[in-house]
Measured scan of single mutants.
Amino acid sequence: MEQATVKWFNAEKGFGFIERENGDDVFVHFSAIQGDGFKSLDEGQAVTFDVEEGQRGPQAANVQKA
């Protein structure tokens, strides 16, 4: 698992990007966020996640709020 920071997340559209420590951004979809209830992330929030290869490149999976 990697630890990184949420760059931005649009709760209405259900997706955003996580900024990795190496500077690369990773796409995150609300369905990858672990937990119950409304799944959203806040800008600047610390998260841990795995990286999977998606249809359009790397994307976050198993996202957990740190």
Rank of each mutant, 00 (worst) to 15 (best):
N62V: 04
M1A: 13
E43R: 15
D50Y: 15
A46W: 15
E19F: 13
D25M: 15
P58V: 10
K39S: 06
Q3G: 08
T5N: 08
W8R: 00
D42P: 07
F38D: 07
A11R: 13
Q45A: 09
V28Y: 04
Q3I: 14
V63A: 03
F30Q: 07
N62K: 08
K65A: 11
T5Y: 14
Q3R: 14
F15E: 02
K65I: 14
K39M: 07
H29I: 05
V28W: 01
G37D: 07
I18L: 15
A46D: 08
K13T: 07
Q45M: 11
P58S: 08
Q55E: 13
Q64R: 13
A32E: 06
A66I: 15
G14K: 01
K7Q: 01
M1K: 15
S31A: 06
P58M: 09
K39F: 07
D25T: 12
N10V: 03
A61R: 09
I18F: 04
G23V: 02
S40F: 14
N10T: 05
D36M: 11
M1F: 12
F9I: 02
A61M: 11
K13I: 09
A61I: 13
Q34F: 11
F17C: 06
G57P: 03
Q64E: 09
N62Y: 06
R20F: 07
E21W: 12
D25L: 15
G35Y: 08
A32P: 01
G54N: 06
F15P: 00
E52Y: 12
R20K: 07
V28C: 07
D36E: 13
F15M: 05
F30M: 06
A61F: 10
G23L: 08
R20M: 09
S31L: 08
V26G: 03
H29S: 01
I18M: 04
F30K: 07
V51S: 03
K13P: 02
H29N: 02
K7N: 05
A61V: 14
Q34Y: 09
G16I: 04
I33V: 06
F27H: 00
E2C: 14
G44T: 03
V51I: 14
M1C: 14
N62H: 09
S31D: 03
T48L: 12
Q59T: 07
L41D: 03
F49A: 04
F30Y: 13
E52P: 00
D50F: 15
N22W: 11
A60G: 04
D50M: 14
G44P: 00
G57K: 03
F27L: 02
V47E: 03
A11H: 12
G35F: 08
K13Y: 10
S40M: 10
F30A: 07
H29V: 03
T48E: 08
E21N: 10
K65F: 11
E2K: 10
Q3E: 11
A4S: 09
I33M: 04
V63P: 02
D24A: 14
V26F: 06
D25N: 12
E43L: 12
D50C: 14
V6Y: 01
G44D: 04
K7G: 04
V51F: 09
G57A: 04
V47Y: 03
